[in-house]
Amino acid sequence: MIENIIGEGMTFALPLFVMAIGGIYSERSGITNLALEGLQGVGAFVGALAAVLLARVFGAQSQLPYYAALLFAMLGGTLYASLHALLCVYFKANQVINGVVVNILAMALTAVFTKGINRRLFGTPSDKFVLGVSERWSILEKSVYPFEVIIVVVAMISWYVLYRTKYGLRLRACGDNPHAVDAAGIDVAKIRFTAVLVSGALSGLAGISFAYSVSASFSSGIYVGYGYLSIAALIFGNWKIVPTLVACLVFGFAKSGGYQLVQAAGLPSSYSDLIMILPYVLTLLLLVFFSKHNHAPRALGEIYDKGKR
């Protein structure tokens, strides 16, 4: 049972973590990003669409669609993130409101397109893309999804880029004092724009991972607030990558632990509704204890206007 809790917990925690890293990139550069929810949804949609199309070409047995899905999910997330980036960085929209708007638009667009594509291309009146089953890798005698390994690698690269490269140095400076960055001859808007794109790519990866692990399909069911959970995780992690991992693991184990508990106790299915709220309640509790002491990047959410001094 403990094995199960850890295994399932990791499967949930890792996508959450990689999405939170995306959030950290965006927010450390100074752009509030509540759009993660929509980014992961659109990413998953694009990835799932690619997988479904490729599966028709290569057959259901091929694993190629699976890896292509991961790649396309990242591309889709990046592309859609450019909307949030464009509005926040260049159009100077209110970042909080815009994040929510981007999410609402994502839900509407993916729902319409999923239905429309199913009807027109595949001739089925369905509101979901059914994905093939992902292969499992065996690592240390444990069976894991390939995406888990990929996420670990991506996370390490992200850490390295954020804390060791000059791009990372400049990015983190943008979230503290964009004027200093500007004075150093660096284009603040460009850094922020790319940071939001990174958050899109990472969220897309997270979204398609959820699609594979939760239901092996893409549907509107992808929008269950995981994006917001990862924001809570990064707040809890004080906008730093390693502590954020801890928060994501807590969420993951709480969720899988709860499920195992309901199953072990043999409760009726209605009670699983109550278990569903566990991560959300936990999020609120964590925020209650950590929000006050944690310091958001100083320039977070501020619209940077070059002319103003």
Binding site: L169, R170, A173, A180, A183, I186
Partner: peptide, 26 residues
């Protein structure tokens, strides 16, 4: 070069990090 009236410094960075930003030695 210009020293502005309101300093343009990143408060949570070290002095060195502030100075090299933009032309970082790699």
């Amino acid at each position: 070069g210009m020293v502005h009236q309101h300093f343009k410094l990143v408060s949570n960075y070290t002095i060195a990090e502030n100075i090299i930003m933009g032309i970082e030695p790699m």
